[in-house]
Structures are given as C-alpha cells and as structure tokens.
Amino acid sequence: MNIVVCIKRVPETSESEIKVDESGKDIIKTRLTFDINESDNYALEEAILIKEKLGGTVTAISCGSPDNDATLRMAIAKGADTAIRIDTADLGEEVQPQIDSFKIAQLLKTAISKLEFDIILTGCMAKDDGYSQVGQMVAELLGIPHAALVTEIKIDAPKARAKRELEAGLLEVLDITLPALFTIQTGINEPRYASLIAIRRAAAKEIKILKWNELGMQDTELRATIESLFPPPIGKRAEILQGTTDETATKLTNIVKEKGLI
C-alpha cells in the first residue's frame, strides 16, 4: 500500500492569547508555538500502521512556508519514507492568509497526482481554521471516493471497510474501493513518539520542495476569502470570581451552598 498523508502545521491556540494583525485578516504568529495538527497526527500514525502491516511507502506532504519542514522531519522520524513540501512563499506575504481551501486542495492534488498511491489520509479538521474541507476537495479533484471522520480502516484490497463517526457516538460502516481518501478523526489509534535517534537521523533527510508556480496549476481564482477577523462580541459572560485561590474557592463553595446545587 502506498499511502500519502497530508499534514498541516498549526499554531497552538487553546492556551494562548490570539490577536489579529494589522491586515485584519490574519493573526499575530510571532509568539505562538506550532505543531502538527491534532487529527493529522492520528492520520500519520494510521499511515504508518498500515505500512507496517501491509508494506509499501508513506509520503508526508504539506503545503506552506519553510517552517513546515520541521513538522515534515518529525513525520519522517516517526516512520514516513519521504516528505514533500509545496512552497507558497513566492506568493508574497499578503496573499498567504487569503489562500483558501480550494487552492490548497488544488496544490495538494497537483502534487499527489504525480505520485503512486492507494490511500490518501488527511485530518478531519484543521484546528486553526476549523474548515473540514481540504481532504474532501482533494478526493473530488483526483476523482477518487472519500469518507470523512473515519475512526477505523480495515484494508482488504482492492476494497477497504471503514467506520465513520456520526453524532452521539453512532458509527457508520461503509465499503470503499481503493484508491480512496479518508479524513481521519482523533482517537483512531495511539500516535507514537519518535525516538531521539530517529529524530537525529531525520534531520539529515532531504525534503522535496515543489514551487507553487512550477506546479502548473490552472485555476487560480480564490473562491472564499477572509474579509476580516475580530474577537467574539462580549455576550453572556460568566461571573468571574476574584481573589486568591483560597478566596475564590470560598466564594464558589458559598454559591454552591446558597443555590442548593449540591
């Protein structure tokens, strides 16, 4: 099985303060830490597990700036055989935040169509934009079937049986013909950590760089663009209890008592 896994490098935002930059269309990234997108990490692990079981290769591919190379090297350290980065730097800084899912999908499609593949895995959602679009678009552009939100894949070539997660814990079982694309939901496996030796070895590995303007894409229109980013309006907001830890705990205990909540 030759497997391609699409990886996005995203900022950690759940514990950081997020501020809009001067353009009003992007965030200030200088003080943020970046890592592989959570569901992509599960997708990468699933790719490696399939390879370990059935043989073949894993190619990790990411579209973005040279900073992504660190994320791709980590993918190699974990078990990917090759890594490709589609460089978008030549588009210019201002254009970066305006690149839409469709364009990313076209770039990925153009690069992937030059490879041999049986399975393409993506994450089910990028944590920064929350779109859940790119994988499905890549599949459609390549003319292969897909299934989204996948939590189990059993391969019985030329078919695969997959489970996808619906609402409230309900699962859908489906059969799909390979080559196919799966968008992977978190929890499908237990992502591994790379060993220090593997990380050191990966540092010397070459990452294949494909230039945006050399890919020969046809369509360049932007179908959906971010006009502006802004903080959510202050609507309903919790009463924040003030004071030392001891004081806030006392206040909370009193509230719980007075309201008869316990």
């Binding site: 899912s101 469709f102 999908a105 089910c124 929350g130 779109y131 859940s132 679009q133 790119v134 994988g135 499905q136 678009m137 599949a139 459609e140 552009l141 897909h146 299934a147 989204a148 939100l149 996808r164 997660e165 619906l166 609402e167 859908e172 179908r223 959906a224």
Partner: peptide
C-alpha cells in the same frame, strides 16, 4: 448542516459544481 453528513458531502460537491463554500 455542518454535521457528519454535511462535512462528508459539502466540500466535494462544491468542487463538482464549481461553487464557493464556507463551512461551520
């Protein structure tokens, strides 16, 4: 809906139709 069904279907349909899409 931006549901398990809508997520599965919306983006690929938009490609086939040449439509723009915004999700969630």
């Amino acid at each position: 809906g931006h549901t398990a069904s809508g997520m599965d279907l919306g983006a690929s349909l938009s490609v086939e139709l040449g439509a723009s899409i915004a999700t969630d």
